[in-house]
Amino acid sequence: MKILVVVEQREGKLNRVSWETIAAGQALAADTGGTLEAAVVGAGVSGYAAEIAAKKLAKVYAIESAGLEPYTPDAFVHALKGFIATNQPALVMMPHTYQVRDFVPKLATAAGSTCISDCIGYKKDGDKLLFTRQMFQGKLAADVSFTGAGPWFVTFQNGAFRGDKAEAGAAAAPVEVVNVEIPAGVVRNQPHEVFKEAKQAVDLTQAEIIVAVGRGIKEEKNIAIAKALAEALGGDLAASRPICDNGWLPMDRQIGSSGQTVAPKLYLALGISGAIQHIVGMKGARTIIAVNKDAEAPIFEIADYAVVGNLFDIVPPLIEEVKKAKAANS
């Protein structure tokens, strides 16, 4: 089986998650006796191609065109569709980034095929390849197979494989530059510069103790009890996205893929279910305590200490106990 990994570069940087996809491709190639190639797409990307070629790969392609910068789904699909039609990989693997999820469904459809998206692993079941993905916001997992002809597309969730496990090659893999033409009229979107909103007022990246609230807090006025706990602990208050979407806390207190990434000594999650987009922002915490009334909430999969219960019962006595302990210290 011929496997192609398409790595991600954006705004002049190779996305670190690319190494994870290469590691995943290497594992799959080893398990299936397949060959593994990689491609990088953009304008002036041969430097990235050379960087990737240090890894154990049969070949690396630099798919080049001035029309591929800045990124647009139309140009990327045009270039990759043509390349895949010529190169004929059986399986195409990519990281499940915002950029990939923007174009891969279009690419798979244009190629007459399908993408199993946001996978966390794979399994071999006899000759059948199964890809594991989360369902129902991580409450359940599914093993999914392709039923149609290839080329098959798979995307992998950030963190599903270890990038540092990507094996180096004995010698640099050969690099081939593939120049593509993006004809006028193909690209319909006109993207502007990427930007960040005005500087954030709160920087949680250095916080040692974070008390984070999720939708389990139910009402805006209840945020007060989480705040009281954060104050008792001498920590900062943070939240999941819906809390910030509701305007109950400012956006700069949001933890997750579209908010801040934090790594405190203690992360205390109150009424947070543990969707992957939240977890990516806090899984680096040294200790995670989760309070959730649902014993099956995915947050418990990464918690060091699990309290299955109603946060409104647990938090008030916890504040008292923390205050007592602090008073005893001084």
């Binding site: 095929s113 989360q134 599914a142 093993d143 197979s145 392709f146 039923t147 099956e296 999969e301």
Partner: peptide
Amino acid sequence: LQKIERLYVPQKTK
């Protein structure tokens, strides 16, 4: 074009 072969409660790793 894709099929769920099996749905299950994920195993805890931590």
